[in-house]
Design a protein around this nucleic acid. Structure first.
Lengths: 163, 163
DNA sequence: ATAATAGTTGACTATTTTGCTGGGTTAAGT
DNA sequence: ACTTAACCCAGCAAAATAGTCAACTATTAT
């Protein structure tokens, strides 16, 4: 399991998609502008995500991408692995032909850790993240509201609508 | 929090160090040969680890590196962050000047996830990994012993010492 | 039919990271 | 003095990352 900016881009885009594709397909152009990711880079990422069966492309006017299935059925580990292009990740790929015992020991340790991380990310779904964020968002808005109440007392003209 | 091969090298080297520096300092040459990492790359990694206060260098003959403190006090997240050279990691670095609300929302989501991963890795120490591995190692050896018993019955000449 | 939309593909470039080489200098033990 | 090692650089080649460009194909609204 590797965590790079590439995976972050993919997760971010999928989050955006999950958030906006409730009613209609979302175009990559929208995601690109919202998330400030280059369109063509998104195209590459979504090509992999589509091949992994996580999103579905809808052609023609009004088209775009939608999630395949519910946001609650899509976990973070799968997204990252879909775009990450697994490359053996070890020099002695689990083979028994590795003479260097010590190397294999620590190598085993790392693999175990990596697996733990993967399991962990597998237990987190897009739906959970959105849900969690929703809660946080509400909390944050409440904070801001409270701050605005205080602020209004000093600068009554600053009472702008925040959303 | 990023997980790359660089971090893996660092964790691997630290595991090796924790395992072998019980009595005396361990030279980078030893680690390099055991873990098949280039000496100069190790030097770079250990320069950072030293600056982070995780290892102590001892010069001169009989010198090498030792852990600063117990293996139970060194967690994985700190090792990775020490070598990883934090580079802002976000375009709108938490600033309030980011107009793109939507971008910040999903960005927040990712940051939250990243933090969860970091907390998770912070909860795992070198000592725990070594301990865990020790248990696994014993179990694996027992498996192999059992397999050898079976094997001996078929090919008595294959009774080589495995360790 | 045809134009518009939008995905598909592949090649191509710039930048960054990675892993490594080799040259030193400095401190400490013999 | 001499050796052993940490320590410190400057640079470098290969790979990965991030992004670009352009031609192409499939779908659908009109």
């Amino acid at each position: 399991m590797r965590l790079t900016t590439k995976g972050r881009y993919a997760v971010t885009a999928m989050l955006d998609l999950a958030f906006h594709s409730q009613t209609k397909p979302v175009t990559l152009v929208e995601i690109a502008t919202r998330q400030t990711i280059s369109l063509s880079y998104l195209e590459q990422l979504f090509a992999r995500l589509r091949r992994a069966g996580m999103v579905k492309g809808v052609r023609g006017p009004g088209g775009g991408y939608t999630l395949c299935g519910s946001a609650n059925d899509i976990n973070i580990a799968d997204i990252i692995m879909a775009v990450d292009e697994r490359v053996d990740s070890t020099k002695c790929g689990g083979e028994a032909n590795c003479q260097k015992h010590q190397a294999c020991l620590t190598h085993d340790l790392w693999m175990g850790l990596s697996e733990q991380i993967r399991d962990y990310l597998k237990s987190i779904t897009l739906g959970q993240l959105l849900e969690k964020h929703h809660v946080q968002g509400v909390a944050k808005r409440q904070e801001q509201d409270a701050a605005r109440v205080i602020e209004v007392h000093r600068h009554p003209e600053a009472n702008v609508s925040a959303l």
